[in-house]
Structures are given as C-alpha cells and as structure tokens.
C-alpha cells in the first residue's frame, strides 16, 4: 500500500492554475522530499494533502483511503507541522501538547504520559510550564513538531521544519526525523535546505510552476547531472588571466573560480584528462591537487528548476 498517492491533482485560484495536474506516490515508511522554488505550489499541495484546502480536480489517497470521502479517518492518521507555528501562545508547553492529544481523542492519562515523553525527547522538560509565547524560536519549532507527534501519526507532514532555528535545534530535529523513519513513520518533507533533503530523503520530487518536473532518489537525481560532474583543481599560481583561454581551448561549459589558485571545471567522469594536463603544461602551471566533484543538490536544484537557489533561501515556501 502506498502511503500517499496523488493523481492528476490540480488547484485553481480564480483563473490562476497553481497546481497543474500533478501525479506522485510516496512509499510507506519513506522520507519523501518535496522541493521547489517559492510560489511553485508546495504549500498548496501540502494543504490539499492534509485536508485544509479543496482541490479543483484530481484524487488524493492517503493510506489507501480517498481524502474526499474519508477525510476524518485520514486526519486521525496524519500529523502536520506547518511552516509557521500553530500552537496557542498563552498556553504552556505541556497544555498545548495535551490539548493537541485531546483533539485526537486521547484520554487524559494517555495524553499526559505522551506529552511528558515528548517533552523529554525534545529536551523541553524544564520549560514545560512556561507559556509557549515565551519559548525561543528553536523551542517553538520543537514543541510544534512534538504536538504533531502526540497521536503517533503514521504519516508526518513537515513544512520547513528547521527553517530559521539554531544549529543545535536543527540537528536535534533532523535526528528525530531519522528516528521516526527508523520506526516506520512516513515523512513528507519540504525544506529550503538542500543538504538536509539530501541527507534525509530517500526520494525527492521537484515542483516548478505547479508541475512536478522530476522525481527520483538523490543518487538518480545527481546521476542525471552526470555531464555536469566537475573537477576541483588547486594550482601553483593565479589563474585569473588564463580562465578564458582554458574555457575556449578546451570548450568547457563552465569554469568557476573558487579562489585565486583554485578552479572548478565541468569535466564528466568518463572524459579523458590528457588535454587538461597538456593545457596546463603548455602554460607552465602545475596542478597541485585534482579532486572529482559530484554534483551537489544545489546544482541539481538549479539544473532542474532553472532558478539560483541563493535567491530562494529565506523566502516564502
């Protein structure tokens, strides 16, 4: 059984078609990354999957159930961590958790026990009686995730879980995601941190302008950039004046200056290195170090979406 199965899903806001008939599947127990530039349709898709937004057409099946007809049964099995916290600022950490547990019909004793367990896991025991509004950003994020985990959902939707929080909290959240995965929870993750997606996700789908343009494992996505694979060269002298001739003579698609004496060039793994060495020998430049560079997820993102990732960071998802 697929954890999530989406077919021909579309969403129109007035005349604007935000989601254009997308199809994808999430396997049971996998961490599925859903990436794309700002305004590509990530949040609209998530909101449709969790039942907060009605689709214009298409079908959504979660854990084998149709969302249209069995929304309540589905909502009982999923947990949602939105990009912005949705807990009650005036209520304490523990009260927020027990309240969220009660929304899923948990009895008083069970929800109190579970709340204490999660507060311990997220190291929030010391602040459990503090009002949520007094929490730091990292603590707020952790409590929001804990709230979504109260009823032990089978699928957890995480929208930018580590966005804008301190390194220690982000590491803790990533560790928690890995632990949940180990225990068999299916995770649907959106993030702006591509290294995070690379590290955590088994498969990633890229959405651009309301369409899914690519889906695959990190390895297959990187392999699709085989021709973009690069070499990092450390040289014994400044290469600034030779950069252009290097690009022209060897017909290189990309020469990137990392610093005065380091260059990154596109050089597919199966391409012979002799012309490169000949070039440098002729110019009396010595190669001190040559290192094969696999395409990064950022390069994969740029190649697939056509948008520089640096423009994306910190923006709306």
């Amino acid at each position: 059984m697929k954890a999530i199965k989406v077919q021909a899903l579309s969403k129109k806001y007035g005349e604007k078609e935000a989601i254009k008939g997308i199809d994808f599947m999430v396997e049971d127990g996998e961490i599925f990354g859903f990436l794309g530039p700002n305004g590509a349709g990530k949040t609209s898709t998530i909101n449709m999957l969790i039942g907060l937004l009605k689709s214009t057409s298409g079908t959504i099946e979660i854990l084998g159930r149709n969302l249209e007809t069995q929304k309540e049964a589905i909502q009982a099995e999923i947990g949602v961590v939105p990009d912005e916290s949705n807990l009650y600022p005036e209520m304490s950490g523990i009260d927020n958790l027990t309240f969220c547990g009660s929304l899923y019909g948990m009895r008083k004793h069970d929800r109190e026990k579970r709340a204490l367990e999660l507060l311990k896991i997220f190291q929030l025991e010391d602040v459990k009686h503090k009002a949520f509004k007094a929490y730091s950003r990292g603590m707020k994020r952790k409590l929001t995730i804990a709230a979504a985990m109260m009823h032990q959902p089978k699928i957890l939707f995480l929208d930018e879980p580590t966005s804008g929080i301190d390194v220690a909290s982000a590491r803790q959240i990533r560790k928690m995601i890995e632990d949940l995965h180990q225990k068999g929870t299916t995770i649907f993750l959106t993030t702006h941190y591509l290294e995070e997606a690379e590290r955590l996700c088994q498969r990633i789908a890229f959405i651009v302008d309301g369409k899914i343009v690519k889906t695959g494992s990190v390895e297959t996505l990187k392999a699709s950039l085989h021709d973009q694979s690069g070499l990092l060269l450390k040289l014994d002298q400044n290469m600034a004046n030779l950069k252009q001739s290097l690009q022209e003579e060897l017909k290189l698609t990309k020469v990137e200056e990392i610093n005065e004496r380091s260059l990154k060039i596109v050089w597919p793994p199966d391409q012979e290195l002799t012309p490169l060495f000949t070039f440098f020998r002729q110019k009396e430049v010595h190669i001190l170090e040559a290192k094969r560079m696999e395409p990064t997820m950022e390069e994969v993102f740029v190649a697939i979406t056509g948008i520089e990732h640096s423009e994306e960071k910190g923006g709306e998802s």
């Binding site: 309540e72 909502q75 939105p82 009650y88």
Partner: peptide, 14 residues
Amino acid sequence: KQKSFERLMLAPVS
C-alpha cells in the same frame, strides 16, 4: 490570524 485555528481544522472531526 495566529494560525491556531488551522490546528483545530486538522483534527479528525467534522
């Protein structure tokens, strides 16, 4: 406005 209403709408009740 503060989004906590969304939390309620995610609850498995009509």
